[in-house]
Structures are given as structure tokens and as C-alpha cells.
């Protein structure tokens, strides 16, 4: 039986982060990559409130941090989606393969 304690909560958050990381690294669609990043963030958020709950009980500091983090995640999602839209407009494609301009020159990338 899985008890509700700090170790298990942290394990869950680690699993969430790993799932997110795997998705971020392996997904080809940029939208799914963004989604995976959200999952990772949620893993981290879960760790925050778990610490708060199990170590300090009634304190609310962890919740504030969690709220803040959700706000940041929302902004990040907005910016990320905007970028995806721009990329889609330019390339008619939202897979990661078209977004490799960091490494090569444009001509090489298009070749």
C-alpha cells in the first residue's frame, strides 16, 4: 500500500519530471514539447507543495510559490505557443526538424 508521505510525494514529482523530460526530448511536434514542459513544471510544483505540507504543516509559503509558478507557466505557455504559431506561419510545419537554425547557417538549414 502506498502511504501518503514525503518520500512518495517526491517520487511522484520526480516521475512527472522524468515523463516531461522524456516527452520534451523525444516528441517531434513542438506543441507536444510545450506540453511536456508543462508536465515537468507541474512535477516541480508538486515537490514545492509537498515540502510545505509535510515539513511545515499549516504554513502557506509553498502555496504562494506554487501560485507564482503557475503564473510563470501560463506566461511561458503563451510565449511558447506564440513562437510555435510564428514558426508555423514561416514553415507550414510545427515539428522540431525545421527549427535547427541555431546550429547552421540558414542556407545549410534549408539545403
Amino acid at each position: 500500500m502506498i502511504g501518503l508521505n514525503l518520500a512518495n510525494a517526491l517520487t511522484l514529482s520526480l516521475v512527472l519530471v522524468l515523463i516531461g523530460a522524456f516527452g520534451m526530448l523525444r516528441r517531434r511536434s513542438l506543441i507536444l514539447v510545450l506540453l511536456s514542459i508543462e508536465i515537468m513544471l507541474n512535477g516541480a510544483n508538486l515537490a514545492l507543495i509537498s515540502f510545505n505540507f509535510f515539513l511545515w504543516g499549516t504554513s502557506e509559503t509553498g502555496h504562494y510559490l506554487y501560485m507564482l509558478s503557475i503564473g510563470v507557466a501560463a506566461v511561458e505557455a503563451a510565449v511558447g505557443l506564440a513562437m510555435v504559431i510564428v514558426i508555423f506561419r514561416n514553415t507550414r510545419d510545427v515539428t522540431r526538424d525545421r527549427v535547427s537554425l541555431l546550429g547552421e547557417t540558414k542556407a545549410e538549414a534549408e539545403a
Partner: peptide
Amino acid sequence: YQNGQVQRSVATAL
């Protein structure tokens, strides 16, 4: 590890 693929870069960083 520097081929411009964002995911490759992230993986390297990780």
C-alpha cells in the same frame, strides 16, 4: 551535440 536541434542542446545540458 551542437547541431542546432533544441532538444539535442537540452539533452546535452541535462
